[in-house]
Amino acid sequence: MKSALLAILLATTRSSAAPAPVESVATLTSVRSAAEVASVSRTIRRGLEDPVQAPAWRAALLNALQGEAKPEIARRIGLLLAWRPDEAALAAILERIESAADRPLQEALADSLTLAAGRLPAEQKAVAAQRFGPRLLKLASAPTPAAEGAVRGLGRLGAPGCPLLLELARQQAVRARHPEALLIALGETGCADAVPVLVRMTEEASSAGRRVAGLMAVSGLLRAIRQDGGALSADTERQAWSCLRRDLRLDADPELLAASIRACATASDVDEDAELAAVALESLGHASAQVRSAAATALFDSALASRPDVKELVRALADHETDATVRVLARDVLAGAEH
C-alpha cells in the first residue's frame, strides 16, 4: 500500500506540465494570505475533479493531514479533502479528529467532517454509514467541539444516516446541546422516517428563530423526498403541511410569515399551490420588507411572475421599494419574468 502511494506521488512529482499534488499541498501549509490560500485551494480542487489525477491529489492531502497539528492548516486540508471525498478521505478526517489531543484541532476539522459525509458519492454513503456510523454516533454524543460536525455529517449521509440520527435525536443530552444542528441534519436526510420527528421538534421550537430553521428543514426534507420519488403516509404528509402552513397568514408574525412563504415555496410548486400563490401575491405589499422579499423570491421563476398584474406589482417594488435588497430582488424577478 505504501509503495503504491509512493509510486503515485513520485509519478505526479515528475510530471512538469501540470501542478504537482505534493508541492501544491505543501504550499498550502505555508502560504498565509487569503488570496494565496484560495489560489492554491482552487488548483487542488481542480485536481480533485480530474478522475485521473484525483487519487494523487487525495493521497497528497491525506498524507499532509496525518501529521498536521496546526488547527488552521488542518482545516484547510480537511476542507479540500471534503471537496470530492471518497471513503478514505472521510475516514482520515474522522481519525484525525478522534486522535487530536487538543480541542481547537477537533473543532477545526468539524466542518470538513460534515462536508465530506455530504459529498461522498451516493453509492458510498450506505457503506460509510455502516462502517463509520457507530464512531460518528459516539463523537456526536460526547460534549466535544466536533460533536456538531458529526451530527451534521450523519444528516448529510442521507437516508443511510437516518436511523443513526434518529437514535441521536432520542438522546435528551444531545437534543439539549445541539438542537439546531439536529434540526438541520434531520432536514438533510431525505428520509421519510425523519419527518414526524422534525415536525415535532419544529412545533416545539422555543423561539421564532428556531421555528424558522425548523420550517426550512421540514421544507427541504419534503422536497428531497419528493425528488427521490419517496412517499409519506397521508397522516405524516398532513402533519408536515400543517406545520409549514401554520404561519402562512398575512396577520402572522412577519418573520414567521416570511419563513412560511419560503418554506412552502421550497416544498411545493407556486403555480400549483393556490393558497401559497394568493398569500405571496398579497405579501408583495406587506409592511415588512422581510415578507416582501420572501414573496418576491417565491414568485421568482414561477409562471405567475409573467402575469401582467403580478408584473405591475413587482415593477412597483422595483421602482419604489425603500429596502435595497427587496428592490434588487424585484428587479431580478422582473428580469426573470421577461425572459
Binding site: R119, R156, R210, A213, G220, T266
Partner: peptide
C-alpha cells in the same frame, strides 16, 4: 439567517450545493 446553518452562505439552497 433562516436555516441557522453556518455552512450555508448563499440561499436559497435546497440541499447542500
Amino acid at each position: 439567517r433562516e436555516s441557522n446553518d453556518k455552512l450555508r452562505y448563499f440561499v436559497p439552497q435546497a440541499n447542500d450545493g
